[in-house]
C-alpha cells in the first residue's frame, strides 16, 4: 500500500529517468563518439558524465552523442549547449576533467576555460 507521499516519491524518481522522452529545453551535453573519439577514450568520459549527472540529480540535462566533428586530434571532445548561450567546446577530455565541467559549468554556469578549444589552440 502506497501513501500519497510514496506516490510523489515514485513520480519524482521515475520522472528523472524518463524525462528525456518529453520536449527538452534544458542543457545538452554532447560527446563525440566517432571512431576517433572512442579510440581517444570518449566512452569513459561519457560514463563519468552520466554518473555525475545522476549523482547530482540533474534531471533536465540531456546527454547525447554525436559523430566526428573533424578535429580528431583533439578528441575526446565534449560540447555543452546551454539555452540562450553560445556552444562551448571542451577538448582532450578525460573522466576527471569531465566531472569538473559538470560541477562548474553545468551546475554553476562557470565555463572551465582551460579545457576549452580556445585555450588549447592558443
Amino acid at each position: 500500500m502506497k501513501s500519497i507521499k510514496d506516490l510523489e516519491e515514485i513520480r519524482k524518481k521515475t520522472l528523472d529517468t524518463i524525462n528525456l522522452r518529453k520536449d527538452q529545453s534544458g542543457i545538452r551535453v554532447v560527446v563525440g563518439m566517432a571512431t576517433c573519439g572512442i579510440a581517444a577514450g570518449a566512452r569513459p568520459v561519457l560514463m563519468s558524465i552520466m554518473d555525475e549527472i545522476k549523482k547530482n540529480e540533474l534531471a533536465d540535462v540531456v546527454v547525447a552523442q554525436t559523430g566526428c566533428i573533424g578535429m580528431c586530434r583533439l578528441e575526446p571532445i565534449v560540447e555543452v549547449y546551454r539555452p540562450g548561450e553560445e556552444k562551448v567546446t571542451y577538448v582532450k577530455m578525460n573522466p576527471s576533467k569531465a566531472i569538473r565541467v559538470i560541477n562548474e559549468h553545468i551546475m554553476k554556469g562557470k565555463i572551465v576555460d582551460k579545457y576549452t578549444i580556445g585555450a588549447e589552440e592558443k
Partner: peptide, 14 residues
Amino acid sequence: IDEYIAFDGYKALT
C-alpha cells in the same frame, strides 16, 4: 505503473 505515475498518473485520483 511507475512511468504512468511519472507523467502525472494517479494525480487526479489523489
